[in-house]
Design a protein around this nucleic acid. Structure first.
Length: 514
RNA sequence: GGUCCGUUCGUCUAAAGGUUAGGACUCAAGAUUUUCAUUCUUGCAAUAGGGGUUCGAUUCCCCUACGGACUACCA
């Protein structure tokens, strides 16, 4: 039996996708593409209470930004709602697949794998509290199901009566007793769980006429012919339930293979990465900026200046590695190199420093013309305009000092506007009594230069200083102070050449006169 | 509490029974640079603990400790 590989990424629209989610999507994508299969996006919005407007669009846009494009489920940036040849399993939003699930839940009841339960949430809460007060924990399972308000206890007539007169009922899975479920995980190997430790999970809620995650997930994966389920580790505890559901439906033959990815952890301390950590430690936990209903803004990698290629690359390496020393991979290269066998079992702490390093590597790979275009947009926003060639020249001089294009301005502002303040530390270190006089003499020499270029300046400046017996360090650093305002930047000759003779002389004289 | 998963430098990780336990990020030092940065070189730094199995365990098994996830009419 060899089926075409079909994987799905199935987030719920309860907020912005966090980087752990993006990584799950990425691994799904890599796995599918490597096998020439399909990557499907499905929105699991069976919890009407937690629905967040805009979250679905955010998910789609985030994936698009990363270049992780679904083969199925999305068309023109929107979730597909009606079946087409390409998107034959539409709709891909579970709330729109509503009519489809109930019969599966009822099928399970008919076959004796599930039952109706009429306990109210208040009753269950009371039971839970009661157990807790005795230091025990309440489990809705074989030990209590016969005593509670269920169709297992009621006659067919009473059950029917209750179903039709109220919507305060659910369908629960009747977890069998004394079974050892043997499961297989592509990453973790064999796992065994005894069904006696499991509970009777709710599969269907009459209140909103919607299935819970477990039912919808299994039914949709089956209907959509999913061959491999790659998801977060938080789902591992429900894997036995899912196995039992496949069995109950008689779908064991086409049950997908499972792979549970370890979680992304906080960079410091313990626990899994959360939105708060980003705010606290100063790095984004979301691919794109997100504004919640209170107007609170969470930073995004895109807005922070990361290239999507760098973001994808760094995410891929959080929990996977190729086994070689190559670290920079394009998406296509990742597709080729990825293997589930090399996915790490343990959780990975996110390292913001390494994230920046990845972006720097990608920034360096870009040619100056491209970077100049990106920097140009920032310059325009500051009301500065220069010829493309000039900006390209600037970029060439400073790109090796930057992690992000947004760093460019701080690294090169003096190449666009004259310094207005001078670094006191440089002044006290290099400023001598005769410095103003020396600067003026240097000006005269520079003014006499026939051609004013990097080469001509280099050839004349330092011999000139040596001839006079001046201190090289003192003169060069005060010249730099005049040009830049502080102790940073490329060679003095580079700067002079770029800003031109007139501006060079103006800046030197200005400082000499102070 | 219960169930399940995990544990190699500070962090991400390599070594799929035999290595001086390797690389990357960070940090430090040196060289280069008239400055800053880059670059180069060097350094710091790890197999959680205890038992087995084996001629030999980072690697296989068990126990302990620690960490994590789950334990909802949430996903």
């Amino acid at each position: 039996m060899s089926r075409r590989t079909r994987v799905r990424f199935a987030p719920s629209p309860t907020g912005p996708l966090h980087i752990g989610g993006v990584r799950t999507a990425l691994y799904n994508y890599l796995y599918a593409k490597q096998r020439g299969g399909d990557f499907i996006l499905r929105i699991e919005d069976t919890d009407s209470q937690r629905f967040v407007p805009g979250a679905e669009e955010y998910i789609i846009e985030s994936l698009a930004w990363c270049g992780i494009l679904p083969d199925e489920g999305v068309e023109n940036g929107k979730l597909v709602e009606t079946p087409t040849e390409k998107h034959s399993h539409a709709p891909y939003r579970q709330s729109q697949r509503k009519p489809l699930y109930r019969k599966y839940a009822e099928e399970l009841v008919e076959k004796g794998f599930a039952y109706y339960a009429f306990d109210t949430s208040e009753e269950l809460d009371a039971l839970r509290k009661d157990c807790e007060s005795r230091g025990e924990s309440f489990t809705y399972n074989y030990s209590v199901r016969e005593k509670l308000q269920t169709s297992l206890k009621f006659s067919a007539g009473e059950t029917e009566e209750r179903i039709s007169t109220s919507n305060h009922w659910v369908i629960r899975f009747k977890m069998p007793l004394d079974r050892v479920v043997k499961m297989d995980d592509l990453i973790r190997g064999e796992i065994e769980v005894n069904t006696n430790t499991l509970d009777d999970k709710v599969l269907w809620k009459a209140v909103d006429e919607l299935p819970t995650y477990h039912l919808a997930n299994i039914v949709d994966d089956h209907l959509m012919e999913i061959t491999d389920v790659i998801r977060g580790e938080e789902w591992l505890p429900s894997l036995p339930l899912h196995y039992m559901l496949y069995e109950a439906f008689g779908w064991n033959e086409t049950r997908p293979a499972f792979a549970h990815l370890s979680l992304l952890l906080k960079p410091d301390g313990k626990g899994k990465l959360s939105k708060r950590d980003g705010d606290r430690l100063g790095f984004p936990v979301f691919p794109l900026e997100w504004k919640n209903s209170e107007g609170e803004i969470s930073r995004g990698y895109r807005e922070d200046g990361y290239y999507p290629e760098a973001f994808v690359n760094l995410l891929a390496f959080l929990g996977w590695n190729p086994g070689t020393e190559k670290e920079i991979f394009s998406l296509d290269e990742l597709v080729e190199a990825f293997s589930m066998e090399r996915v790490i079992k343990s959780g990975a702490k996110f390292n913001p420093d390494k994230a920046k390093w990845f972006n720097m590597e990608y920034l360096r790979m870009r040619d100056n013309a491209t970077l100049a275009k990106e920097f140009g947009a920032i310059l325009v926003s500051k009301g500065i305009s220069r010829p493309d060639a000039y900006i390209e020249h600037v970029v060439g001089l400073i790109k090796e000092r930057a992690h992000f294009v947004k760093d460019f301005w701080d690294l090169s502002d003096y190449l666009f506007v004259a310094p207005t303040a001078y670094d006191q530390a440089v002044k006290t270190k290099f400023w001598k009594e005769d410095t103003p006089q020396i600067l003026k003499e240097v000006c005269q020499m520079l003014e006499g230069l026939e051609t004013f270029s990097k080469e001509s300046i280099e050839h004349s400046l330092s011999p000139y200083i040596k001839e006079r017996g001046w201190q090289m360090g003192s003169v060069m650093n005060t010249l730099r102070l005049a040009l830049v305002g502080e102790s940073k930047g490329p060679g003095v000759a580079d700067i002079m050449d770029l800003i031109g003779k007139e501006e060079t002389l103006k800046r030197i004289i200005k400082l000499a006169d102070i």
